[in-house]
């Protein structure tokens, strides 16, 4: 963490080498996160570039109120939402709270088996962008819900709710793929 701050100081002082190091450290993670909201990989690559340009320009403004990674992912989130607002406003429609059924807890352990990895991937791809982004930050970036709230600029409870809905949607999708035995009929 402190290492990140030191690199950011160097970037603020104009070190392109430090920016390259910072880029190599975060680029693929950032791209992955942006892709969780932005379906077009071409645009996602553009956004990665924009994020690092902003880091270059605003490194001196980082105030250490949050972790560097939280600050960085916030920039990525805002840029992605901004781009989506301009190009795909329908993707940003407020989350409709589905009537999510509670699942039979006994069946849950059966839902994810090693051989179902492809099904998990498919189901992740069907999540709403907001839900998927929170799940990525929770499980891939292993961020706390407080940090995620900072990144996506929403209340902590909203983060928990989105994650809850992401989990429920995953269960429903996996149950559907698993066949009649696990579905609620």
């Amino acid at each position: 963490m402190n290492d990140d701050i030191a690199i950011l100081h160097q970037i603020a002082a104009g070190s392109q080498q430090a920016l390259a190091e910072f880029y190599r450290r975060y680029e693929s993670r950032l791209y992955r996160f942006i892709c969780s909201k932005m379906p077009d990989q071409f645009e996602a690559a553009d956004l990665v570039n924009e994020v690092f340009l902003e880091v270059w320009q605003k490194a001196a403004e980082f105030q250490q109120r949050s972790k560097v990674s939280t600050w960085l992912f916030s920039i990525a989130y805002f840029k992605t939402v901004d781009r989506l607002r301009k190009t795909r406003p329908e993707a940003l429609s407020e989350e409709a709270l589905d009537n999510l059924e509670d699942d039979s807890p006994a069946s849950l352990t059966c839902l994810i088996q090693a051989e179902q990895a492809d099904q998990v991937r498919h189901c992740v791809s069907t999540l709403k962008p907001d839900h998927r982004a929170v799940m990525e930050l929770t499980f891939f970036e292993e961020m706390s819900y407080r940090d995620i709230a900072t990144v996506v600029n929403c209340p902590e409870n909203t983060v928990k709710t989105r994650m809850f809905h992401a989990k429920q949607a995953m269960k429903k999708c996996l149950q559907r793929l698993a066949g009649g035995g696990l579905s609620h009929e």
Partner: peptide, 26 residues
């Protein structure tokens, strides 16, 4: 809990969509 742990394992094992910009982007 078990479901979430397995889900986390799967999410972490998932490859990113396509190639990131990498050195070319840099």
């Amino acid at each position: 809990l078990t479901f979430l742990r397995k889900l986390q394992t799967e999410v972490q094992a998932m490859p990113a969509a396509g190639n990131s910009p990498g050195e070319l982007g840099l």
